Amino acid sequence: MDATEPVRRRMSRQKSRDTAVEMALRRALHALGLRYRVHRRPVAGVRREADVVFPGARVAVFVDGCFWHGCPEHATWPKNNAEFWRAKIEGNRARDRDTDARFAEAGWRVVRVWEHEDPAEAAARVLAVVR
């Protein structure tokens, strides 16, 4: 069963790029002196777009929403249309694992940042991988 039409309309209006969380992380990375590209597909033949990319260091950063990616701390499972949403979120998790594996095979390191993480702490984690 698909999502109901009102839910589909509401969810389609959710920003998928340049979200407040992503912008806060980018500001924190910039403050650390890091320069990067945004919303790029770093691996040829893999249709997955990283939120922040460090081409020289071959590091791709993904900012994952707690709801959409099933955060172990904050995931919520909707009661309405539960089967549809469980399949959708589990599918996102499977795609994330596949993305991580494909990027690793291509020589890239992936950093995943949850939306609930402190931007400064997440930026420090990214800095450690980039350096």
Rank of each mutant, 00 (worst) to 15 (best):
R125P: 07
A20S: 13
F84D: 06
A57W: 06
S12M: 14
A57E: 10
R17H: 13
M11D: 10
R97D: 15
R86E: 14
E117Y: 12
A87S: 15
E121N: 09
N81D: 09
A106K: 06
A57Y: 04
R40P: 01
R58L: 04
T99L: 01
R125F: 05
W108D: 08
R8Y: 11
D100L: 03
T76S: 11
R9G: 00
V7P: 00
E117P: 05
R17I: 01
G107I: 03
L34H: 12
R47P: 00
R102G: 11
A123E: 09
H39N: 15
S16I: 04
I89K: 07
R13T: 15
H30V: 00
L29I: 04
R86F: 10
R40G: 03
W114L: 09
V129D: 06
W85G: 06
D98V: 00
C71I: 02
R13E: 13
V38C: 15
R86C: 03
A106M: 05
S16D: 08
E117Q: 15
G70V: 13
I89L: 01
C66G: 10
Y36A: 02
R48M: 01
A44H: 12
A3C: 05
A31R: 14
E22I: 07
R109P: 01
A60P: 05
A24D: 13
T4I: 02
I89F: 09
A120W: 01
V7Y: 01
R10P: 05
V113M: 02
R48H: 14
A44T: 10
P119N: 09
R97W: 03
I89P: 02
V129M: 11
W77M: 13
R86L: 11
G91N: 12
G65E: 00
A124L: 11
A75V: 06
A120P: 00
R8I: 10
V61A: 05
P72W: 08
P78F: 08
E105W: 01
R112H: 13
A101T: 14
D118R: 11
V113E: 04
R35G: 11
P119K: 11
R35V: 08
A104W: 03
V63C: 14
R86G: 03
P6F: 10
E5A: 12
S12F: 04
A44M: 02
A94H: 07
F103R: 04
R27P: 00
N92I: 10
R95F: 06
V46H: 02
S16M: 05
E121W: 00
K79T: 12
D18T: 06
V63D: 04
R35A: 09
R10K: 15
R97E: 15
D118I: 02
V61S: 03
V61W: 03
E121A: 15
V113H: 07
G33T: 09
H39Y: 13
I89D: 00
G91A: 12
M1Y: 08
P119W: 08
A57N: 06
R86V: 13
A28Q: 08
V21D: 01
N80F: 02
N81C: 02
E73D: 14
N81F: 05
